[in-house]
């Protein structure tokens, strides 16, 4: 039987109204929405992703709805639901797609504790994963996107998904939300990147989503072994500086950049230790993307 993929038929809207089952990395999502602006952007970003057959058990059953125009004739809102519970306050209706993406990330970050979840960009080359752990605003998404268009396979811009035992990093390729000035930076850096619409004045400023490269979505079940850990830090106008990190320091900084390290208790400690031991660890200050990509290139070919 032929596999159906997103984009094969014109009627994703009708499918999504019923419930659209698809995979994002290790997770099966059931998305139900009647909002055409959501399905349009969704179809553009996840083009070519396999549509799974229903009925099937999903990890996360999510919905995005709009407030009734009768109840709110002005300031239309959208709401994210997981298992029939709305975990957040409503967003403006125009921000329904970013809401969907953040909502699914929230579900993963607060529930998928079978994995050690790092707050990190992740890429792969030659079967080995490069992890870019950092706090928001450090240039993690921008640098991950840049590398994705310079020969690295994009795994994630947000989650380092580490399997129990820490010998494996799982891909989680999702829409890459670029914020504010990064949008233009990536347009200049990789004009071939496909981007969704710019959502203005969201809670994180202006946001536009980059579509993960085709190869990245097609190979989203192909895991990688841990290879390198680089802590990026964007400093506008600063010089590029790279430093080898002692493993103890890398461990501490990783623990601070994890969604569930504390929660996993002893297993978190063991897995994080094993991960740090398996990787070469660096910190990287950068302001110029080309230089940052070149430095990582050097690190990856020598370490």
């Amino acid at each position: 039987m032929r596999t159906e993929r997103i984009g094969d038929r014109g009627d994703l809207h009708r499918l999504a109204a019923q419930g659209l089952l698809y995979r994002t990395g290790p997770f099966v999502i059931r998305l139900q929405t009647r909002l055409r602006e959501v399905t349009d952007t969704f179809a553009r970003i996840y083009l070519g992703t396999e549509v799974l057959e229903d009925p099937r058990l999903a990890h996360f059953s999510v919905r995005v709805t709009a407030s009734s125009p009768l109840r709110r004739p002005w300031g239309a809102q959208s709401q994210f639901w997981i298992d029939d519970i709305p975990p957040f306050e409503p967003y403006p209706r125009t921000h329904a797609f970013p809401l969907l993406e953040w909502g699914i990330n929230w579900c993963i970050g607060t529930r998928a504790h079978r994995y050690l979840l790092l707050h990190a960009g992740a890429l792969e080359r030659g079967g080995r994963a490069l992890l870019l752990p950092a706090m928001p605003g450090s240039g993690k998404s921008t640098l991950s996107t840049a590398l994705a268009f310079r020969g690295w396979r994009f795994l994630s811009d947000e989650f380092g998904v580490i399997l129990p035992g820490a010998a494996t990093v799982a891909p989680l390729p999702r829409a890459i939300p670029l914020k504010n000035r990064s949008i233009q930076v990536i347009r200049d850096f990789a004009p071939e990147a496909v981007m969704g619409p710019v959502f203005e004045k969201t809670r994180k400023g202006d946001v536009a989503h980059v579509r993960p490269p085709h190869d990245s979505l097609a190979r989203q079940l192909e895991n990688a072994a841990p290879g390198w850990i680089v802590f990026p830090c964007f400093r506008a106008g600063g010089t590029t500086a790279v430093r080898t990190l002692p493993r103890s320091e890398a461990f501490t900084r990783l623990a601070q950049n994890s969604f569930n390290y504390r929660l996993l208790g002893e297993r978190g400690f063991l897995d994080l230790t094993a991960l740090v031991r398996a990787c070469a660890c660096f910190s990287l200050d950068f302001s110029d993307l080309d230089q940052a990509v070149a430095v990582i290139e050097d690190l990856a070919s020598s370490a």
């Binding site: 058990l57 529930r111 569930n260």
Partner: peptide
């Protein structure tokens, strides 16, 4: 158990076990 079921069931163990510690 199918894979998503066992994923969700075992993922749910960590928070209560954290509380127990």
């Amino acid at each position: 158990c199918p894979e998503p079921a066992w994923d969700l069931l075992t993922s749910a163990r960590y928070y209560p076990n954290f509380l127990q510690v």
